[in-house]
Amino acid sequence: MIENRPWLNVITHAGLLLGVFFLCFPVWMALVASTHGPEALSRSPIPLWFGDRGWENYSQLLAGGLPEAGGVPVGMMMLNSLIMALLIAVGKIAVSIIAAYAIVYFRFPFRMGFFWMIFITLMLPVEVRILPTYDVIVRLDMLNSYTGLSLPLVASATATFLFRQFFLTIPDELVEAARIDRAGPMRFFMDILVPLSRTNIAALFIILFIFGWNQYLWPLLVTTEERYYTIVMGIQRMTNSGEALPVWHYIMGTAVLAMIPPVLVVLSMQKLFVKGLVEQEK
């Protein structure tokens, strides 16, 4: 900014701080609540600083099953969520990059027709096609399996479109140079296209991992056995305690634990993510 008015700076900073506060306060509350006993959270005023039961609560969550969550250990639910999120993210990227490769680089009948068909599925997320999809999964005998959890979510029009747009920016001469260098379609894909898409893949991976991790409705439908429960389902089940008092200290503890893997993914791939969004390697 060119203007230099001290009071403007003060207002700007106050505004920004307020935003930070709004974003961070719920996370702070979850952290604080997970370190208290159950009764502290049902009384007013709610504590705003850490209690003394943090260690106890977290070891209970991680080690033993909680009756309130159907007796499933949190660690197992996290593992299920991790497997599902990874399968969805990796599957989506693999399928869409191959689909985009076919659409951009190969001439086959109804090429554009297929492209628009893929594009139209943007309007059909799981929530819309939930009954037919469920029917298919039942007939394929995929209830209560990791395949059933992830497969229906793997097709991705958004990712296909993104890769297509990226491939269209790759100069034709690069393809021609590769042809002269005796790179066949497979080699061109593996040696040139995939490495060039690296930053795009990283950016997509973050988005899709979090998308997969946050899945709620679909896992709720296809899993009936407790050993396939995901963490998001687990949190929801804990809050549905019926007559009994909700175990807020455990719920908040689970929520904090559930936040860790997505945060780790974002932190570890942040650099590539930003690069993928802003920089085009030509």
Binding site: P171, E176, A177, A178, R179, I180, D181, A183, I192, P195
Partner: peptide, 27 residues
């Protein structure tokens, strides 16, 4: 093109951006 035993130099060079000079030449 790969079977014709010719080499081509393009107007915009068409170097593989993710490979080093050595890798570009040896590909």
């Amino acid at each position: 093109p790969g079977e014709r035993d010719i080499a081509m130099v393009f107007q915009n060079y068409a170097l593989y951006p993710h490979m080093t000079v050595r890798e570009n030449m040896s590909y």
